[in-house]
Design a protein around this nucleic acid. Structure first.
Length: 824
DNA sequence: AACTCTACGGTTTTT
DNA sequence: CCGTAGAGTT
């Protein structure tokens, strides 16, 4: 046994130390927010190795790529420091997310499930495409209960409980239909050689249940199993851990029931609460000392979470300073709430704090808009995390679909996606013919274009589609014949030879072209990180049996196209978060879990929004009350945990805010303060009512508070916004510089928001020089359409539209700000 | 086969 | 209010 390095236990408090020193047997670490959980887990891994555990005997599972990467990094550093240069490769530890662990497992054991190891991984969009087809085929298209969205949700629920189609109760007609769709969907996935996200987990459970010898192998191998965020596991993930862990019983689960915020997704907090039942001999360690937050922040958090009735009591404490009071700001509406956030950010910045010390949280992504607008106008750089993921964008999915088709010929969803992108004159009728041919031969769509028989088949098409098919078939063939690594080569050839890039360039879709370029960069990065040399096995026989187990397979998988595709399939929007760039972070409360910032803004503290209340079934009082009594309480408690998560992210200070008036789905309403506000003791709060600081967006209430600074008059509707924009910009430290743009990987919405404001600001001078007002009946001239008469004018400012009846080109709707209309 | 229009639906979303 | 999916049109 190795000599224990002093560093492994250095600076740990007694419970932390106990957790790190517990090597054998089940261990539950109840880790309060900011209690140094990651530290404990990484030290424990280093300690396992110091006590003779082999890296490949360790399985460490997280929920996010970020957490996995962070853990890996820290373990690497620690192991290097504490194992006296022993022959330890941290890469041999299976340290990954649940999904990527399962994907790796399933590729190794694909045969046992009747799959090829090159299976595709379907995201929600792919899954919906497949489901749409099935719903149509079964003639369920009319019934809204069976919309792809609903059905996908139902199937996803079954899968997260590890229920197969045959295990579904079929007591009612409805249940029979759902079970039938589920069966057809699974059959469809198999036909396409594809697994969806939920399958990765549920099929892994199925694999272990149906193949005891395979299970035995992995049980033997993974002597130490660690699971992070155990409170967020669903039934399926729970089974997986039980199956793997019940033999050697060295399961270490960490989590915090108070941070369980994914129940709506099938997570079951009972999994962590019943750990001691599953493992009666378990040691339970509570980490209750908080190293992150000030006393006031911690007190506020505890005061809120104490209102949850279904809860194990926990006493989080800290030796940190008392800290500042929590600021609570009331703003007039959501725009003004954004301005208040911007003001406070500016203030902190003036005090010398960095932007990446600050984060703005909200309940729903829709709330980010108003905040973005305000930050842009104040020229404050920010990064929006989440929203539309880079890998979900159309052009990216198109490009990846080509590559997926190359790897997995059976994937009809991918084939349909790209066969006519860019246009190859292959529309519905051509696809129909291909489909019939595939059905006749019992092959996939792509396979009808492969092999010697394909030529005959292709020749039956009319000239244009025929040419398109030949082109497409040649392209796929060429890509298949290329070495699958480096990925960058395959990708760039595909982008050029398919005409994908060119067609977007011709269409003036520069942003999409940029995104493709970004994808090429991602591929290049992947190639660099997965250089086969890194995975090369040492010369000679393994130092002991099993030492190189999986290395070769890992190397092969990584140094290939399919490894890249798997990585991109398992990436989440959250993964774009860069803590090092000096920008304010904007994200939902859900995504904030696991992070920390010195300054946290908690926005939208309003009833209905936080806690979020769904307005369905309100019409039926019975249902409404039933909900109120049962489900609703649970829902509110989860919302409370969300607030708890939000508050406990902060190190130094919290800025809470709410808007008195908020527009949602177009309709606006007066809001009520969130009940959670009342749960924070008054003595912790510093309230500032800024709701009268400026004219409200709706432009009617002339309100002015004495300490609110200069009143900015908002023009009445219809007038150009220019003066108002400028004044606001000046107020927040006017900047003519273009606000800092985050990378093109950031959401499109962000870019649009930015563009809109930049456009508006730039438009100021032009619209003043040349007020292009038109009235109904005006005669106008257009460079392209010639002479015409204005039929109607709608909207105002930049979005003003005119309807013109052109003499030779008929009626057209034109954007006044863009169309070069000349008034005669 | 490609454009335009309308109707609909819309929380959170670690993968 | 806003985006998008599917129908409807040329």
């Amino acid at each position: 046994m190795s000599v224990l390095h002093p560093k492994i236990l250095e600076g740990l408090n007694p419970p932390q130390r106990e957790a790190v020193e517990t090597i054998e047997g089940p261990l539950l670490i109840l880790a309060g927010a900011g209690s140094g959980k990651t530290r404990v887990v990484t030290r424990r891994i280093a300690n396992l190795i110091a006590h003779g555990a082999r890296p490949w005997q360790i399985l460490a599972i997280t929920f996010t790529n970020k957490a996995a990467a962070e853990m890996k990094r820290r373990v690497e550093t620690l192991v290097a420091e504490t194992n006296f240069g022993a022959h330890v490769r941290v890469n041999d530890i299976w340290l990954s997310t649940f999904h990527s662990f399962c994907a790796r497992l399933l590729r190794r054991e694909a045969e046992a499930l009747g799959y090829s190891k090159d299976f595709s991984i379907y995201d929600e969009e792919d899954a919906s495409t497949l489901l749409k087809e099935i719903i149509k085929r079964l003639g369920l298209g009319e019934d809204k209960r069976y919309s792809p969205r609903n059905v996908r949700q139902m199937i996803s629920n079954f899968k997260s409980q590890a229920l197969r189609p045959e295990e579904i109760e079929e007591n009612s007609f409805h249940e029979r239909v759902v079970a039938q769709v589920y069966r057809e969907y699974q059959a469809g996935l198999k036909k396409n050689s594809a697994l969806d996200f939920d399958d990765l987990l549920s099929q892994a459970v199925a694999l272990f249940r149906d193949h005891p010898t395979i299970l035995e192998r992995y049980r033997e191998r993974f002597r130490y199993v660690l699971v992070d965020e155990y409170q967020d596991t669903n039934k399926c993930q729970y089974h997986l851990i039980q199956l793997l862990g019940q033999a050697h019983r060295n399961v270490c689960a960490t989590g915090d029931p108070d941070q369980s915020i994914y129940a709506w997704r099938g997570a079951d907090v009972r999994n962590i609460l019943s750990f001691e039942k599953d493992f009666p001999e378990a040691k339970v360690v509570k980490l209750e000392q908080n190293y992150r937050s000030t006393q006031r922040i911690l007190l506020a958090a505890s005061s809120v979470i104490e209102n949850n009735s279904e809860r194990k009591k926990k006493d989080l404490w800290t030796e940190n300073a008392e800290g500042q009071k929590l600021s609570f700001t009331i703003a007039g509406d959501e725009q003004l709430e954004g301005y208040e956030v911007a003001r406070q950010v500016e203030q902190l910045s003036r005090e010398g704090r960095r932007y990446n010390d600050m984060a703005v949280f909200y309940r729903t992504n829709a709330q980010s808009r108003a905040i973005e607008t305000a930050l842009i106008q104040a020229a404050i750089p920010y990064q929006l995390v989440g929203g539309t993921a880079f890998y979900e964008r159309r052009e990216i999915k198109d490009a990846l679909a080509y590559l997926r088709l190359v790897v997995n010929t059976k994937d009809d969803v991918c084939f349909r996606r790209v066969i006519n992108v860019p246009r190859r004159a292959l529309g519905d009728s051509a696809l129909e013919t291909i489909q019939q041919q595939a059905a006749k031969n019992g092959t996939s769509l792509q396979e009808t274009l492969d092999g010697p028989a394909a030529e005959m088949f292709i020749s039956t098409f009319k000239p244009k589609p025929r040419q398109g098919l030949v082109q497409f078939a040649r392209l796929i063939e060429k890509l298949r014949s290329m070495p699958p690594f480096p990925v960058q080569n395959v990708l760039t050839l595909m982008l050029d030879a398919s005409g994908l890039r060119l067609s977007l360039m011709e269409a003036g879709e520069t942003e999409r072209v940029d995104n493709l370029e970004e994808l090429v960069n991602a591929a290049a990065e992947y190639d660099k990180e997965n250089d086969p040399a890194k995975f090369r096995l040492p010369e000679g026989p393994p130092p002991e049996p099993g030492a190189y187990d999986g290395m070769e397979e890992a190397a092969q998988r990584q140094a290939s196209l399919s490894g890249f595709l798997e990585n991109s399939a398992l990436l989440a929007p959250t993964d774009s978060f860069d803590p090092d760039s000096d920008k304010v972070t904007l994200m939902t409360l859900h995504m904030a879990k696991g992070l920390e910032f010195p300054f946290v803004f908690l926005t939208g503290m309003e009833e209905g929004l936080l806690p979020m209340i769904r307005s369905q079934n309100v019409a039926d009082p019975d249902v409404f009350y039933a909900r109120e009594q049962t489900e609703d309480k649970k829902a509110v408690e989860e919302e409370r945990r969300l607030v708890y998560v939000g508050i406990t992210r902060a190190r130094e200070k919290i800025f809470i805010s709410r808007a008195q008036f908020r527009r949602r789905f177009g309709k606006g309403d007066i809001t009520q303060p969130s009940r959670f506000l009342g749960e924070i003791p008054d003595k912790l709060l510093e309230i500032s009512d800024r709701s009268q600081a400026m004219w409200s967006q709706s432009g009617n209430a002339p309100l002015c508070a004495p300490d609110a600074g200069p009143v900015i008059k908002r023009p009445s509707s219809g007038e150009p916004f220019a003066a108002f924009e400028r004044e606001v910009a000046q107020k927040f430290g006017d900047s003519n510089e273009e606000p800092v743009r985050s990378s093109s990987r950031s959401s499109r919405r962000h870019d649009q928001a930015l563009q809109t404001v930049v456009d508006r600001l730039l438009d100021v001078s032009e619209s003043q020089e040349e007020p292009a007002f038109l009235d109904v009946g005006d005669r106008v001239k257009h460079p392209q359409f010639g002479l015409g008469t204005v039929e109607s004018v709608s909207g105002s400012g930049l979005s003003a539209k005119v309807r013109v009846q052109f003499h030779s080109h008929g009626p057209k709707q034109l954007l006044l700000s863009l169309a070069k209309l000349e008034r005669l």
